[in-house]
């Protein structure tokens, strides 16, 4: 059993909130910035779960999709303060399509 940290990547205005709970917050400004930060976090494996807000996550779907095949870390899309854009659910339906050949939840 291992103890690992939690990380949250997103816009500065909101991610700092979770710092108060002891989650490592990584504010990012642009998609390039986010790409670098998340690639580093995935490589270092110090964080078991990386939460990424949807605003940031929609730009870098490729990295997130790639990480889904690894055992660790778990990259999870969460809505930003602007509200859910259903990107997290769409990722779920992609997993379904790959495994079953069809989207049984009919999210789109």
């Amino acid at each position: 059993m291992l103890n690992k940290q939690l990380a949250l990547v997103g816009e500065k205005a909101t991610v700092v909130a979770f710092e108060g709970l002891g989650v490592d917050a990584f504010p990012v400004e642009s998609a390039d910035d986010a790409r670098k930060v998340i690639a580093r976090l995935i490589r270092k494996k110090e964080h078991a779960v990386i939460f990424v807000t949807e605003d940031v996550g929609k730009e870098i779907g490729d990295i997130i999709a790639e990480s889904s095949k690894q055992y660790e870390p778990s990259v999870v899309l969460v809505p930003s303060s602007a509200g859910s854009q259903k990107i997290g659910l769409r990722k779920l339906s992609q997993v379904l399509k790959r495994a079953l050949g069809t989207d049984i939840l009919k999210i789109e």
Partner: peptide
């Protein structure tokens, strides 16, 4: 919020589901 005294981490436990290694996370604070 920038100087928290709270420590949050997750316990990662390896679980085997049909021979697939799956991590199980448990929050500990």
């Amino acid at each position: 919020v920038s100087m928290p005294t709270r420590k949050t981490c997750v316990e990662v436990r390896k679980q085997q589901i049909m021979n697939v290694a799956v991590p199980e996370f448990k929050l500990s604070t």
